[in-house]
Design a protein around this nucleic acid. Structure first.
Length: 890
RNA sequence: GCCGGGGUGGCGGAAUGGUAGACGCGGCGGUCUCAAACACCGUUGAGCUCAAACUCAUGAGGGUUCGAGUCCCUCCCCCGGCACCA
């Protein structure tokens, strides 16, 4: 037996044995409970894994290993998110075919995952680019299509000029392509969408029951962006009702037919304060109003609309931009007051939200206030803290700000004056409905999910177009629509997929035998990852996407682990697909992931230097990234070292091979688990792993020392224990319960620290141990076994090595997880804090069975307590059993 | 601006309203060694000290409580997300 941790001597041996024994093959034993744990579907990048990725995979593996030992059927699969932009872009750069490249990278990932000792059931693995997988991605597309949830539309879409494809809203971050950081442009191309908006309310409501981090749920709530309000109709006023002081530019002198438009507001209570209204420049009515206007006015309007079109969305939506707009020369009637208000066109109103038109209440909305000030529109206070507190509102206006108030009462609001805001919102909504010009309505920021990509490397959309422009789904027998194997697949700039140039692919026959052509867009990668967790339940099914029975058994995923960056992308899409499939009766759960955990990132020291005078910095950077080689050549005062996320581009990656080579796989596992809470970021240092090595070495040392007295039959020879033997058993059973709980709640750092305390205690006990004492020998044998079992999910190679050195056959993984006996975990004596007037003055040791009165008496006997109580009268005594005694005296 | 999550020794971090700083890293002292490394043993919040005792201390300030890192209020700072969404 090794007496210290020497990973090179045994770790590889155990990994080989696990593979030979097919140890991690999924068990589907009907008598056992199931546990489904899953890591986010990784895209296999050419950079391979870093120790940062391991921080995701190791903890899931620890939990799975414990669950298996606890008697669960564990499903712990791994596969690869192979389709999509990142793979294709890398393949283009390397002049390779994405298919061969991705498989090669996937093999590297697998090798690295095995190197760190992770136990996946590789027999269930697949690539999302396998035809046997994407056949079913297409089949699910069809389910959506048949249900009316997939549609083609010629809308303005986000186009990434670098990746040469359209993107979903979720993939545009701050106006930039989420992948490559290029500014997106607007394009009008016919695109396929999924109607995720139809599920907005359910996606919002069902968040409440999920055991997910609050931050992720919050992000989804914001993204869905529900708001309640009233949508109502405004009529354009006839020129005869134009108020004095407004010069109407209508040169026709004619009466026009009644024009109307609808506005949405969340603050119907402020309607009496509407002194103008605003249409988005893209609003359809703008054209009509412009045609009515004088030639000069028309020129002005058209110029403004043109200008709004030409500036990008990002610029347009910058909050610090000065408001701009143009008066149409027309007026609309405020339905509450009956008075005409001017209609403006302004680009601060967006066509994409609500109706694209608003009622403007400058008195109580900062944006409207800014606009009204610039264009000299009246500002009217209609909400105040109280009817008699109008001066506060006026003061705010004079100071240059709208008075924004969610409570308070209405003023200057006719019969509603004096009514509290909440009540007025309800009453005015009802009033609108009774009048028949509006209704209470819920709006969402969520937009439909744009799924088309004008790229080669994705799942083909299984749709045929006929000569008349009709679309039909490819019949089930003809699935999968195979992605043609071609040499050249670079995207074009014309908004067409490269597949459009492949006539053999495009030409097809419709179901009625007429000529048709295939849809040439492919699906974005998020389609593939929206159901892979279902396929893992039944990965070799060639008849159907999955059998309902299998999915009923395994779903939902009990523990889903990955980074927080997918909050509104993958995690939202996968929820949506699951709900659709649920409605179709194809899956038994409304939600795919019962519990979600986000791991922290691993940061590495990365060299930066100060910019030279002629250099400009990247957004968010205050220095310029340099390579480690360059850093070596520079003087220390020229450099700044910063903690940055490990990435190939920063050159700061530590690979699992390096870490395992230097310190061993188990040391890497222990270090990553122990160094910080699971969800916290970690500052990587190779030296930090030395502590993990010491911990593992101590375990080996204890095991080696105990080997001669270790008795595998300790259960039979255990009798009444006292003294040291009893202490040992108490530590053992306390440790079992704490470690089990901690692993369960993802507190791996405290699980490891508990094991360290246990090891330290056993180490101390070793020095006092009497090998001739049978009860001590049994207790320490139990302790040694328990230590190996408890440490095995965390350091599986070491556990197996020690286990076999002690003469056991097989693997620790196949042993039963120990169960704590609460009676043994209880101490005979407890240390109790004694406080006088809230300050700690002494601690006393009392029998655990002592009554409150006995504890109080013992505490009164303490010299220190006597000293601090001297000359005082005890007013009150608080006894918390097992914890403290507190005297209140004066 | 809005919404989340945070702020504890030199560092990473522990702590169901009940002994703040577990465990580890680093430091210091020692054992082993010709010496070093490894390993092992001891020590390590600050102040005052020979020591005991005492005082202070969980971003700042208030409050509730016998007792607050933990609960409440006001404010500051950091991280993440959203942002002209009516």
């Amino acid at each position: 037996m090794h007496d210290r941790y020497e990973p090179n001597e045994f770790e590889q041996k155990w990994r080989d044995r696990w593979r030979e024994a097919d140890l991690f093959r999924t068990r589907e034993d009907a008598a056992r409970p199931k546990f489904y744990a899953l890591d986010f579907f990784p895209y296999p990048s050419g950079a391979g894994l870093s120790v940062g990725h391991c921080r995701n995979y190791i903890p899931t593996d620890v939990l799975c290993r414990m669950r298996y030992m606890q008697g669960f059927n564990v499903l712990h699969p791994m596969g690869f998110d192979a389709f999509g932009l990142p793979a294709e872009n890398e393949a283009i750069k390397k002049q390779r075919h994405p298919s061969t490249m991705v498989h090669e990278y996937g093999a590297t990932y697998r090798r690295q995952m095995e190197l760190i000792g992770n136990g996946y059931d590789w027999s269930r693995s697949f690539y999302s680019s396998d035809p046997s997988y994407y056949k079913w991605t297409q089949w699910i597309f069809k389910q959506l299509f048949n249900k009316g949830l997939a549609y083609r539309s010629n809308a303005a879409v986000n186009w990434c000029p670098k990746d040469k494809t359209a993107l979903a809203n979720e993939e545009v971050v701050g106006g930039l392509c989420e992948r490559c950081g290029t500014a997106v442009e607007k394009r009008f191309i016919p695109q396929w969408f999924f109607k995720i908006t139809e599920y907005a309310q359910r996606l919002l409501d069902d968040l409440d029951d999920l055991d997910w981090p609050e931050g992720i749920k919050n992000q989804q709530r914001n993204w869905i962006g529900r708001s309640e309000g009233v949508e109502f109709e405004m009529s354009v006023a006839d020129q005869t009702s134009v108020p004095a002081g407004y010069d109407l530019d209508d040169d026709s002198g004619q009466k026009h037919e009644a024009l109307r438009f609808r506005v949405f507001t969340t603050r119907i209570d402020t309607i009496f304060g509407m002194t103008f209204c605003v249409l988005a420049p893209e609003y359809p009515l703008v054209k009509t109003l412009s045609e009515r206007a004088s030639p000069e006015k028309r020129t002005e309007i058209e110029a403004y609309v043109q200008a709004a079109k030409s500036i990008g969305d990002t610029t347009r939506q910058a909050t610090d931009r000065e408001k701009s707009g143009v008066h149409t020369g027309c007026f609309a009637v405020n339905p509450a007051t009956g008075k005409p208000v001017p209609i403006f066109i302004a680009d601060y109103v967006l066509m994409g939200y609500g109706t694209g038109a608003i009622m403007a209440v400058p008195g109580h909305d900062e944006r409207d206030f800014e606009f009204a000030t610039k264009y000299e529109v009246p500002i009217l206070p209609v909400i105040a803290p109280a009817v008699e507190a109008l001066d506060q509102v006026i003061a705010s206006h004079q100071a240059g700000h709208a008075f924004e108030s969610k409570d308070g009462v209405l003023v200057n609001s006719g019969e509603y004056t004096g009514m509290p805001v909440a009540e007025a919102q309800l009453n005015l909504g009802v009033w609108m409905e009774s009048l028949g010009i509006g209704e209470r309505k819920v709006n969402y920021k969520l937009r439909d999910w744009l799924i088309s990509r004008q790229r080669y490397w994705g799942c083909p959309i299984p749709i045929l177009h006929d000569a008349d422009g009709n679309v039909e789904a490819v019949s089930d027998e003809c699935l999968p629509v195979q992605l043609p194997d071609v040499e050249r697949y670079e995207p074009g700039d014309d908004g067409a997929s490269p597949l459009a140039a492949i006539t053999e692919f495009v030409n097809a026959t419709a179901s009625d035998g007429t000529m048709a052509w295939r849809e040439t867009d492919t699906m974005g990668g998020f389609a593939c990852s929206s159901w892979y967790f279902l396929r893992f339940c039944d990965p070799h099914n060639f008849e159907e996407a999955w059998s309902l029975e299998k999915v009923k058994y395994w779903m939902p995923v009990d523990c889903y682990v990955g980074g927080a960056e997918h909050a509104v992308m993958h995690l939202l899409y996968a929820r949506f697909w699951t709900k659709v499939l649920f409605d179709l009766g194809l899956v038994p759960t409304k939600e795919p992931f019962a519990r979600l955990q986000n791991q922290g990132q691993v940061l590495a020291m990365t060299p930066y230097r100060l910019p030279r005078p002629d250099e400009t910095l990247e957004v968010g950077e205050d220095a310029i990234l340099i390579g480690f080689d360059e850093a070596e050549t520079m003087a220390a005062d020229q450099l700044t070292w910063k903690w940055a996320r490990m990435s190939k581009s920063k050159g700061n990656v530590v690979t699992p091979e390096e870490a395992v080579g230097l310190y061993g796989a188990d040391a890497l596992r222990v270090y990553e688990l122990f160094v910080a809470p699971f969800e916290a970021d970690v500052q990587w240092s190779n030296e930090g792993m030395q502590g993990a090595v010491r911990f593992l070495s101590r375990i080996f040392k204890i095991a080696a020392e105990l080997q001669p007295i270790y008795n595998p039959g300790w259960r039979r020879s255990l009798g009444e224990t006292n003294g040291l033997a009893k202490d040992i058993r108490r530590w053992t059973h306390q440790t079992i319960s704490k470690v089990s709980e901690d692993i369960e709640r993802f507190a791996f750092n405290t699980a490891v620290s508990t094991l360290m305390i246990y090891v330290n205690n056993l180490n101390d006990a070793l020095r006092k141990l009497d090998a001739q004492d049978a009860s001590q020998a049994s207790a320490i044998s139990e302790a040694l076994e328990t230590l190996i079992l408890l440490v095995s999910p965390i350091a599986p190679h070491s556990a197996d090595e020690i286990w076999s050195s002690l003469g056991h056959e097989g693997f620790v993984y196949l042993q039963e997880w120990p169960v704590a006996n609460p009676e043994l975990a209880v101490a005979d004596e407890v240390t109790i804090a004694v406080q006088v007037n809230g300050k700690l003055r002494d601690t006393i040791t009392v029998p655990a069975s002592a009554s409150n009165e006995e504890i109080e008496t013992l505490a009164m006997g303490s010299d220190k307590v006597v000293f601090h109580l001297d000359g005082k009268t005890i007013r009150k005594v608080i006894v918390v059993p097992g914890k403290l005694v507190s005297f209140v005296a004066n």
